[in-house]
Each structure stands twice: as structure tokens, then as C-alpha cells.
């Protein structure tokens, strides 16, 4: 998805919509309630950030974490590093102090169940601090 050259694409509007739907289903496997929950958490964690920007950064990090931008073999990958590398690219202008928090949310999201039991913000901050130590 990330490597696709949009203006050379010959997809119809329906195909594009289907792709977007598929991607949305992949990101929010528990549907709209999960999307709303993530939006709530992002607005709490990054109150100064525009909601759409925060969501975009989250999706960017998430795509990197699951190897959507990677050409390496899955066994050679380090998902946390991949995520950090993408989020810390200058062109995305993600504040350096926010990166570990986005990463913590993405790592936590991997373990969330149908009950949408996202960890409270303080747990995410602790995980982010742990990630910062490694940075």
C-alpha cells in the first residue's frame, strides 16, 4: 500500500473503496467501537495534536510495526525498530517525545481483546518510558 504509485494506479473508485475497507478492517478488527476507542486514547495522550494527524501517525507506526513498509524477511525483522525508524523520519515531523507513546499504544493494541481492554494511560506511559530507555 505504502509503495504504490498512486497516479499510475488503474483501480476503479469501487476497487479503491474496497481496498480502504479492507485496510480499515485490518487496522480495527473489532470495528467502529475500536476506532472510536483509539481516537479517544489518542486525544488523551496527545491533546495538542490534531486528531487526524494523531491517527495518521498511529497508522503509520502500526503499518511499520506489522511490516507493511518492509522488504526484509519476517524472521529478520525487528518490528519495534522498524516502527521507530518510520516514526522518527524527519518528513513525518512526529515530535520526538511523542514517538515512544505512539509505539506503546501500537504494542498494546496488538494484545487488546474484543472487550477493547486498552491499558490505562499510566501503563502506556510506563511502557513508553521503557522504550525511551532503549532509544
Amino acid at each position: 500500500m505504502g509503495k504504490e504509485i498512486q497516479w499510475l494506479s488503474f483501480k476503479t473508485r469501487e476497487q479503491k473503496q474496497a481496498d480502504l475497507d479492507e485496510y480499515t478492517r485490518w487496522v480495527f478488527k473489532y470495528g467502529q467501537p475500536q476506532k472510536e476507542k483509539v481516537e479517544q486514547i489518542l486525544s488523551r495522550l496527545f491533546p495538542k495534536e490534531a486528531p487526524s494527524m494523531a491517527m495518521m501517525t498511529y497508522l503509520l507506526g502500526r503499518d511499520a510495526y506489522y511490516g507493511r513498509y518492509n522488504t526484509k524477511k519476517s524472521s529478520d525483522r525487528n518490528p519495534i525498530k522498524d516502527m521507530y525508524d518510520v516514526l522518527s523520519k524527519k518528513r513525518y515531523q512526529v515530535p520526538k517525545k511523542d514517538i515512544p507513546l505512539y509505539m506503546a499504544l501500537i504494542i498494546a493494541d496488538e494484545r487488546v481483546s474484543e472487550a477493547l481492554d486498552y491499558p490505562p494511560d499510566d501503563v502506556l506511559h510506563v511502557v513508553a518510558a521503557r522504550l525511551m530507555e532503549q532509544e
Binding site: I107, V126, V127, R130, E135
Partner: peptide, 14 residues
């Protein structure tokens, strides 16, 4: 360059 352990543990999340 940031170095992250591939198998990093997160006991708080666990």
C-alpha cells in the same frame, strides 16, 4: 541510531 531489542519484554503490559 536507536537500538531496540527484538524480543523486548513489557512486564507492565503482561
Amino acid at each position: 541510531m536507536a537500538e531496540f531489542d527484538k524480543n523486548m519484554d513489557f512486564p507492565e503490559l503482561d
